[in-house]
Amino acid sequence: MTLWISGYILLLVKFGLVLGCLLFLAAYLVWAERKLLARLQIRYGPNRAGKFGLLQPIADAVKMITKEDIIPAEADQSIFLLAPTVVAATALLMFAVVPFGESLAIMGQRIPLVITDLNVGLLFIFALSSLGVYGVALGGWASNSKYSLLGGIRGAAQMISYELALGLSLVPVVMLAGSFSLVDIVNAQSGYPYILVQPVSFAVFFISAMAESKRIPFDLPEAENELGAGYHTEYSGMRFGLFFIGEYVHIQVLGALTAVFFLGGWHGPFLPPFVWLLVKMIFIALVMIWIRGTLPRLRYDQLMALGWKVLVPVSLVNIIVTGAVILMVG
């Protein structure tokens, strides 16, 4: 009984910690993005609220929360209200299977430093990222506006196409680690990170992950100069904020997943495991910001051609080659 209760409390504590960290990081990732993007374009970025604009996320949060929550008269009420939560929740839930350290031993109890070690963790992540499409597509549809609908449709098409490449690019990783569990995948990289043996896989994963998170150069669902703001054109206040949080949590999740699958997760010398994971996550996020500051948006046909004609075939060939090598070596 006590074991059960203590386990429950432990879960809640981990939950709170991870959630708090994620949201805090999301807020400051926005700040970092604005700052870095500005420097890439020889500007200063936010520098009014507090030193170096460090209070900007707080000011933004206050603004979002106090803004009027507008629901268009013709919108499909319940779906309109629900869509942003789907986006934010699926992004947050993905972090449940990301391990951030070796299991600790406190008072004779083994505490795994992961919210839940699912043996099909990878499938769980795919399931959630597929569900995230619903938030975008339904949000765009329920707004009852042309721009939103077009954005939602683009989002759905893009995310479904790139899901395929995303999934295929991780098959070699699963083959190498011999498990779907993220904990096992990280443990299998204690010797060397998989990026060294699977660079192609890494490239495909990274590109399709960026497309999944709808970042420039893949931000067609919200292409400002064509669609207003795309699927979240009609949203205001904290509901827009939820879309925003979802996007930035997604960036962190992608950073964490890239770290887990290719950069050895929390493995690393000297620093504590948690810090290593954080460093890798932030590094990936910074690279994504750099990409955003450099590349223009793809055209829609280019987007589809890249997904179906390049990434999918490349990852399929990669799977075959990996399989052959494993067969020969092992």
Partner: peptide
């Protein structure tokens, strides 16, 4: 392109405050 933006990172911003 990436080199150009990276170089910009070390330039002094031209914004007027």
């Amino acid at each position: 392109g990436f080199a150009t933006t990276f170089k910009h990172l070390f330039r002094k911003p031209i914004t007027e405050q």
